[in-house]
Design a protein around this nucleic acid. Structure first.
Lengths: 237, 237
DNA sequence: GACAAGCTGACAGTCGGCTGAACGGCGCCG
DNA sequence: CGGCGCCGTTCAGCCGACTGTCAGCTTGTC
């Protein structure tokens, strides 16, 4: 699968850094939810399955761009699914999630065709970084750069330039911007941004989104984000 | 991923004298351990695999800088792996380890694309020397000099200049810097740096990476390394 | 004008990261 | 052999960035 990168077979393969279809197979409710929300916040579409069976079905049905696979599942070993997929010729990149005491699993996982692994408990930011790395490995080159007014937003390497000058953004700030930049021209509701920022359960009862929009504007300029009163926000132009 | 298709910013081959990622494929426990410890002591990160299968997986997945390959393995001949790699277009230097009675293997090995060989039992110092020699041979093929702010990082000869002045770095310090310099613009998570430092299994639970980043900053200037809170580090601009 | 929706400055708590200091191992040198 | 210095690692305490919240203000709509 990793084989010769530019081979004809892969010519059509495109790895975008956002808007990916991602399959998450993880039985732990808390971790699963956290990962799902985080990854969704990066602008990807996440299907979260909690059993091996569901995961298998999903993987067979949908053409995912990336699979996040827990190795310890209630109804079987995740490794089995991985080998199965590879045997069936799937080239989809797979990142394995393991507990920290399962070194042998990790080796076996790489053996079975995984592209990378993460050791639990892991930092969500690190997950993002690994995903990017795997993405890079697959992407021929050319990072998507979004030009919006005086800004250029480089989703791939998490950078924003204003008039060519790099601007420092905090994690949340970037998350909000990325959520907007993910679909330029689209209107994103406050609720959607909130969902991208926080895990499902964590009820937030304040104007956090507004605050972050405000902070973004201070750093990036008034016009960087457009307000559509009563509807949501949109990336400025 | 020894294989060819290297999509991103790696231009050309790189060989440093410290902080290399080295793959050791050797089934003998005693010898393996000795070599691993010795090489790790030189400041490299060693992944030690005891079977051909694991070795193959590792070699395909990770970008090693050097492979130490025993030719007699429980589950097959090391030579097969070597030819396989070469056929896949891998340029990673390979040093072969053979018993003293396997002259034909040695010849065949060099024929198959090995860069050097060592006859068991060998002196660890000699191993070091061979590694250096191979390193030099590759370094000669001119590596890019990375310019990052006031720094120029010469991966080829393990040197860093700050405003043109050479700076002395210790082994680990260099390893961290090199890991970052390997992929300029990419965000490297703390875990990845740790991996580059300590190889697979050795779980380290302290802030070593932070310490080295701190020391690097002291020597190279505040801005040489950028912190992305909760995510990782990146080479300064 | 009245009301709703959105904006923003301020603030305190928290968490991650930074760094000085100390310790032990190792090699080098006298 | 003993002393010395460098290096790697650990630890603890400090520090600052980031965050969520709120109050009071502005803007927009009817």
């Amino acid at each position: 699968m990793l084989a010769s990168g530019r081979g004809d077979a892969y010519c059509g393969y495109r790895f975008r850094e956002h808007g990916l279809r991602i399959l998450l197979i993880e039985d732990d409710a808390v971790l699963g939810e956290a990962v799902r929300d985080y990854v969704a916040g990066l602008g990807h579409a996440v299907d979260w399955m909690q059993t091996l069976d569901d995961g298998r079905t999903a993987a067979r049905t949908v053409d995912y761009d990336l699979v996040l696979l827990d190795l310890r599942l209630p109804d079987g070993r995740g490794l089995a699914l991985l080998t199965e997929l590879r045997r069936a010729g799937a080239v989809t990149p797979v990142i394995i999630l393991t507990a920290h005491d399962q070194i042998s699993d990790r080796i076996e996982g790489l053996n079975s065709g995984a592209d990378d692994y993460l050791v639990k408990p892991f930092n969500l930011g690190e997950l993002g970084a690994r995903m990017l790395a795997v993405a890079r490995r697959y992407a021929a080159s050319s990072l998507p750069v979004l030009e919006a007014g005086r800004l250029s937003i480089r989703l791939a390497d998490r950078r924003v330039l204003r008039d060519g000058e790099p601007v420092d953004l905090s994690g949340r700030e970037w998350a909000v911007l990325a959520r907007l930049a993910n679909r330029p021209d689209a209107i994103v509701s406050k609720g959607e941004i909130e969902e991208a920022l926080y895990a499902f359960g964590s009820e937030i009862e304040s104007n956090t989104v507004e605050v972050y929009v405000s902070r973004l504007r201070k750093k990036l300029g008034k016009d960087c984000v457009e307000t559509l009163r009563g509807i949501g926000y949109r990336l400025g132009r």
